[in-house]
Design a protein around this nucleic acid. Sequence first.
RNA 1: UCCUCGAUAGCUCAGCUGGUUAGAGCGAGCGGCUGUUAACCGCUAGGUCGUUGGUUCGAGCCCAACUCGGGGAGCCA
Length: 508
Amino acid sequence: MKTSTRIESLSQHIGQEVELKGWVSNKREGKGIAFVILRDGSGYCQCVVTEESAGAEALAEATKLSLECSVILTGTVLADEKQVGGVEVQVNSLTTVGGSENYPISKKEHGVEFLMDQRHLWLRSARQWAIMRIRNTIIFSIHKYFQEQGFVQMDAPIFTGNACEGTSTLFETDFYGDPAYLSQSGQLYGEAMAMALGKIYTFGPTFRAEKSKTRRHLSEFWMIEPEMAFYDIFQNMDCIEGMLQAVVKDVLANCQEELKTIGRNTAVLESSLGAFPRMTYDQAVRIIKGEENVNGVNSIASLEEELAAKQAELAQIEAQIAEKEEQLKEPGLKKGQMNFYQSKVIEFKQIKSDLEEELRNIPQWIESARTFEYGNDFGGSDETVLTRLFDRPVMVYDWPHEVKAFYLKRNPEDTRFARGVDVLAPEGYGEIVGGGERETDVDMLIGKIHEHELPMEAFEWYLDLRRYGSVPHSGFGLGLERMVTWVCKLKHVRESIPFPRMYGRLTP
RNA sequence: UCCUCGAUAGCUCAGCUGGUUAGAGCGAGCGGCUGUUAACCGCUAGGUCGUUGGUUCGAGCCCAACUCGGGGAGCCA
């Protein structure tokens, strides 16, 4: 018996006999023939079982297969351009390894709650398979980029003793009788490590106890936090841009099949390989408020145009729903036609509810853009108003120091501003990276710690970093799941991580 | 914590302004047809309408509270 072959490499075995091990992701059958769509984790392949090639017994076995049965089969690889991957396998023998009765996830649509309850099985679906493969490519690519640039990977602790930025967003645990909190950032430790190793990055889990129920929040997520000695904010932005582009490039190079599986239009990913626009907070505010155009496009005018377009689209979809519902009432309708019209109605209603949501949002965005108060941090709608004018991530730097973290350096030429930088992803995804140049002046830091009413004793070690050989340094934090969500253009972060932990969701 | 929408069969949904025995498709089971790609044809099984209380001659539908879930605000990656 030959060693088994992975589906992803079948195209190199055309004309040969191979052994495949996997699960039944779909099956169709006819008289004297059965089509088994096998998946093995590396890909999907149609396996054809006929009486002539496999014998009556194997055909009977194939006919009995249900969704997600595990099987081992042997067969001949044939080129077939109609199939995914360009091949199909003519089966010679087939053995069932494990049965699978009443597999809960069907080929039809399911609701979010049901799928989340079945997450351990949902991961087997083609769409989830593709997302997890892209996530893996992104993780690998991040490591590769930093390693090639001479960064050292070092992890920050997960238990932290002091509630550095307020306890409300921290998970409290018991650490040998004392309260300890799960880390919500390794950044301060990253600074210490950068003073030791020059350029470092952390890659670890982060915990936020926010009772957020939105499409971009998780209670547990993975964050990459690089920290670089002797980098100013502009070198920091070069680093962010270089890393994000390396990741996008790797995904485009290695995940074409996965991107196709999830229906991702890659135009924006491709344009993201070009230089990212960089702008100060001041300029970003002018753009949001419609006082400055981007390539001739005005933020507010274009929102109003979009509103009108969406309203027309809504009227159209409503007409289509009415039409299909009318057709459903026709007497003597065949079962198949009824099924078709019904699934169309469901599909259109989904589009309709999405449209209605956008129609509720756009006026709020316009309102929020018009009334934006200079000096405030950006809200979700402000980010959307800004980023929809670009076809790639945008970097906004030099923020009013009051709205940013205590450790950010002031712009020496205008101390109203702190040298923070936010990277906002396009297509409505908002902040994926937050970072900046760090404050090096001890007195300035002490003042800030008092201003934020933080416990000074907890920061003594951090202040030491400025007392002994302080240097300009910068860093940033990348939210892995937000990156995956944008690259895959997912509607919600919960699909970007194998087992999401979020408000109201702890199992499976 | 606040705003908003929702909870009807294993799944996805319908159920008009409260009115007799609550419907469909998918899935499941059985049978027929078919080199097929979630949409061929027929039959069968399957529901104390989220929980509790209230209004009413009568509640899936109205009211209140609660539980769970979707979306959003705040906060952020």
